[in-house]
Write a protein that binds this DNA or RNA. Sequence first.
RNA 1: GCGGCGUUGGUGAAGUGGUUAACACGCCAGAUUGUGGCUCUGGUAUGCGUGGGUUCGAUUCCCACACGCCGCCCCA
Length: 416
Amino acid sequence: MITKQKGTYDIYGDSAKKRMYVNDILNALCEKYNFGYIETPVFEASELFHRGVGETTDMVQKETYDFVDRGERNITLRPEGTAGVVRWFVENKLYGNLTDPVKVYYNMKMYRYERPQSGRNREFTQWGFEVFGSDTCEADAEVISLAYNAYRLLGLEDVKIQLNSLGDTESRNNYREALIKYFEPHINDLCEDCQERFKKNPLRILDCKVDAESEIIKNAPKTIDYLNEESKKRFERLQELLDLMDIPYDVNTKLVRGLDYYNHMVFEVTLRDSYALGGGGRYNGLVETLGGPSVPGVGFAMGYDRTLLAMEEEGVNVPINNSVDVYLLAVSESEKETACYLAQNLRLNGFIADTDLMNKSLKAQFKSVDRFDAKYLIVLNDEDLQKNEVVIKDNKTKEEERVNINDLVDYIDMHM
RNA sequence: GCGGCGUUGGUGAAGUGGUUAACACGCCAGAUUGUGGCUCUGGUAUGCGUGGGUUCGAUUCCCACACGCCGCCCCA
């Protein structure tokens, strides 16, 4: 037997319906914010992610699906959405006429070679969005607003924003140096992983779970103390806007996030003050890094599967319609012909209709009625059909009514 | 990539080194001669993840691998 690959999964049944429900909500919300839908290719030149996400990040170093194709191109399955969208933005020269910001949202499969756990797979979905061309705090606030309200609309009440600012390039570099200087004498008191982080990406030490309670990390320099005047002002302004929109947030100076491209505002959306369901931030240098002009950008991505899990844990009630409007029962050949015709007719008139396709006994067809939770059932009967009539039964009230076959659609329309 | 736990039918699951692998749900058929959902009766596994090994004999013991779950790394 051929089985699915590690870390992949099939989506079907009720969980497929849940996803459709979530998709509909998210898509509609994005449209309200006047974002346009975009899809980019699953695979891109490996270089895109190496340059975009950051050569030194673990995501690129050990988690990407890389391969050489038959034309000897170096290909990578996208591990995140932003790099591909930026590539699209640059390749299509959308920066050429930036009278308005370019706002796009996506809902795409991503691939990372990781050890699977629940809410984390090798193939997974991220829903996210990006804004190009605006360097304003209002753009930052809009992005956070969209992210926050997405979770709220999905029924997750207890969500909050974790907010930090890395500042502009100058501030970020100053901070990085201060951090290195601070940690250097303490390096042997930190855990092994942190000693590794110290070399590769010292900012990540702040994220460490092992040393989280240690005085060393608690007393470490804070990002906001190293913001220059302008960066500080921006950060304050952003907070004002969030206050104005009633979006709850905590300033979390330890939040640095893993990808190299962020500057200024970074944020995560957390559930119950614990784990993050999504994150984003500003990336003013990324477009340039990927071969475009200097165009500011800001964006967000939601861990789709994780969010679905969270909804389950929180007991969010997702309305799933598993019931059929009308089920047609038929046994004889002529009854089945009528069933075919009527089923099509009902479907084209907007009803969910179904009928037996397996030549089952009438009794077995009644079981199907129950399984499909049909609102109405019609037992076709040759005698009635001679008179152009059908008997339609309300499956809840058990009331039966004799209806002319030509009035059937109207009848159901009136009663539903 | 590292560590721990797990893997029995469509589903949930019990169980044992040795004839026919519980039970429940589901499904199918009949009682009910073309109007069901209750009840009763009967039926329902390519045989216990895959491949090796130990053994007279393994689903049960050992090893490897695969997949799943949990923790780490990482990400979100």
